[in-house]
């Protein structure tokens, strides 16, 4: 491998990791509170509200129905507003975060549903406020499952970020497309694939280890 190819791939890998983790961070920043709210407004839960639940659920479903490649294009005006530009790595983070956050919200909601209702009831009987229940009961009890869902989200974002190549986001996906699909350089294309697989395995491995470390249920 020539030195220039090496640096090309290293740069691509760095860009993919940057996009994945930054978008992962922002999608949890939006998706976590959204998921908690979806959970709390459900029937028999602390902030039970069929109206709010339906409205929120509606928007989450809409955003989850839009194919990511279309979301990127559809969101261009908004992306320009937030990132100042509609092309490049930082611009891609906007649709990546927005695209993943409804997905995260649903995952968070499902994690919270695994908590036995009695545990929440016990906290209420102690005089815990809703906010205290979120902080001291819901999040710690769901943590192993939330970590698993974070790995799932990050892995999905690795794939999505490759599509970001469409808006000149860079990253391994862009290199694979440019040199592999367009330029037909089999070596670079295969190396890109191996690197993507490596990233996915690494995220899964770390996530599993972390989740097991904080899981005291068994």
């Amino acid at each position: 491998m020539s030195e220039s190819t090496y640096w090309l791939l290293a740069k691509g890998m760095g860009e993919t990791l940057y996009m994945t983790f930054t978008a992962g961070f922002f999608s949890f920043l939006i998706g976590l509170p959204l998921g908690i709210f979806l959970f709390l407004t459900r029937e028999r839960q602390l902030l039970e509200s069929p109206g709010w639940n339906r409205v929120l659920s509606f928007f989450v479903n809409i955003f989850r129905s839009i194919p990511f490649i279309i979301l990127i294009v559809w969101m261009i005006p908004f992306t320009r507003l937030i990132a100042g530009t509609s092309i490049g790595m930082n611009a891609a983070i906007v649709p990546l975060s927005i695209g993943a956050s409804p997905f995260v919200a649903r995952l968070v909601e499902n994690s919270l549903l695994e908590i036995p209702y009695g545990v929440i009831e016990a906290a209420r009987s102690m005089g815990a406020t809703t906010f205290q229940i979120i902080r001291k009961v819901l999040i710690p009890e769901a943590l192993p499952s939330l970590i698993n869902n974070a790995s799932l989200t990050l892995i999905t974002l690795v794939g999505y970020s490759a599509m970001g190549g469409a808006v000149g986001a860079g990253g391994l996906g862009h290199i694979g497309y440019q040199y592999g699909y367009v330029g037909y350089d089999a070596f670079i294309m295969n190396t890109v694939l191996i690197l993507l697989i490596l990233i996915v395995f690494l995220i899964q491995f770390t996530g599993d280890r972390l989740s097991r470390y904080v899981d005291h249920r068994k």
Binding site: P116, G118, V119, E121, A122, S125, M126, V137, P140, E141, L143, V214, H216, R217
Partner: peptide, 14 residues
Amino acid sequence: IGMIFQQFNLLASA
């Protein structure tokens, strides 16, 4: 007013 339950309802994470 304290309360205890049939299923104990302890925090598994604590």
